Computed example of a mutant assay.
Amino acid sequence: MHTKMSQVQISEVGPRDGLQSVKAIMPTAHKLAWVDALVAAGVSEVEVGSFVPARLLPQMADVADVVAHARRHAGLRVLALVPNLRGAQAAAQAGAHKVSVPVSASEAHSLANVRKTRAQMLEEVRSLAAWRAEHAPHMGLEVGMSTAFGCTLQGAVPEDEVIALAEQLVAAGVDEVGLSDTSGMANPAQVRRLFTRLRQALGERAGAAHLHNTRGLGLANCLAAYEAGVRTFDASQGGLGGCPYAPGASGNVVTEDLVFMFEAMGVSTGIDLPRLLAAREALRAGLPEEPLYGMVADAGLPKGFTDTKGATHG
């Protein structure tokens, strides 16, 4: 039995996963102000963007500038998504502390998303890890395994394949492998089972839970992952990048709701919830037309709510 730890790491992915999912382009100055507001709330890791060609994702054209600004915050871990070696080289040059590579558990999703088979992505990761070892040894390298809990294109994804791919990725040189519920198909029993298997297979190299609320199970799945020993969780402020009420939405877990759940349980996130709720204004200023979601933001903090730092709110 693992002993319950009283601390979790929340990685804010809104500036990447959220912004690349919406049509509007947030002006750079507003992105920087949003990152500043997140840091002021105590967020210690932010995925600030993707190093991909601007013609493919114009929302990410300014990613190097956002990395440079974010790096000014002492203690903030600056993360970027990279689909290939070229992206990793650009991220390293910009100064990202860590890069994340999207590798699909589903062959069909891999071909649709990055136009490569799983075997080809494994080879890409191998060459990226070799380059990192020689040229950017201090830069972290992780994989968030997409469609680990099911795929809209192929349906069920065999759990044995997920674990085997995770082991191959660690052998290829990545620091850690997390699991992503890309299509919002996961349920708590499945999440608990698969993360338990991942931790048995990879030990300390088992990484973050990136779970979606597409079908209303986001927080339940996060709790199941926590009970399986996961201590790092991705989430998006305001549910940016998808909501169960929007057509075709991906449904990211809302950062504010996730932080509230853990803090209410007595599990420290290191994040000041009132300041995190205030950071929504920086987000809203940069994307005034985009709907923001969150149960805690709508309901407010309960009377007498005390966070793990002992401060009483509400």
Rank of each mutant, 00 (worst) to 15 (best):
H135Y: 05
F195H: 15
F195Y: 15
G203V: 08
Q237E: 13
L292M: 14
V35N: 02
Q190M: 15
A208N: 01
R193M: 13
K31L: 05
A130Q: 14
A119F: 02
L19P: 06
F233K: 02
M26P: 04
V259F: 01
A220R: 08
V114M: 03
Q20R: 01
D17E: 11
C151N: 06
R205V: 05
K303A: 15
Q7H: 15
A220V: 11
L111K: 12
E204W: 00
Q154E: 15
M185N: 03
L128A: 07
L273V: 07
F305V: 06
N252P: 12
V99R: 00
L128Y: 03
P15I: 08
V103F: 03
Y245P: 00
A171R: 13
M60W: 07
K116W: 03
A33S: 10
E159C: 12
A41S: 15
A29G: 00
D17R: 01
P247V: 06
G173I: 07
L194T: 14
G314A: 06
V52C: 03
G304Y: 07
S104Y: 05
A68I: 08
T269A: 09
L219N: 03
R118E: 09
Y293G: 14
R197T: 00
L217I: 01
G266L: 02
A41H: 08
R72A: 14
E256L: 06
P302D: 04
P188D: 12
D17K: 01
P102I: 13
H2D: 10
A189C: 09
P291E: 08
R72C: 12
T3N: 12
S146K: 05
A246H: 04
R16E: 04
P83H: 12
M145A: 10
L273H: 00
F305Y: 06
A299C: 10
A40G: 09
R205C: 13
F305G: 01
A186P: 01
A156I: 12
A148E: 10
A37V: 09
A297H: 11
G294S: 08
Q237K: 00
D65F: 00
I25H: 00
S11D: 13
P15T: 08
L211Y: 08
L38H: 01
I10T: 04
V230E: 08
A189T: 13
R77M: 09
H73W: 12
V13W: 03
K23E: 14
G140D: 10
P291M: 12
P244L: 08
T269V: 09
G239K: 04
P58I: 09
L141T: 08
A208Q: 10
L56P: 00
L277F: 10
M1A: 14
G150D: 11
V43E: 09
T3I: 07
H212E: 13
A246D: 12
A130L: 14
A220Q: 11
P291C: 11
V191G: 10
L122Y: 02
R199G: 14
M139V: 06
R126E: 15
L202V: 13
A70W: 02
R86G: 13
H210W: 06
A96C: 09
G95L: 07
R197A: 15
L202D: 11
T152Q: 13
T269Q: 07
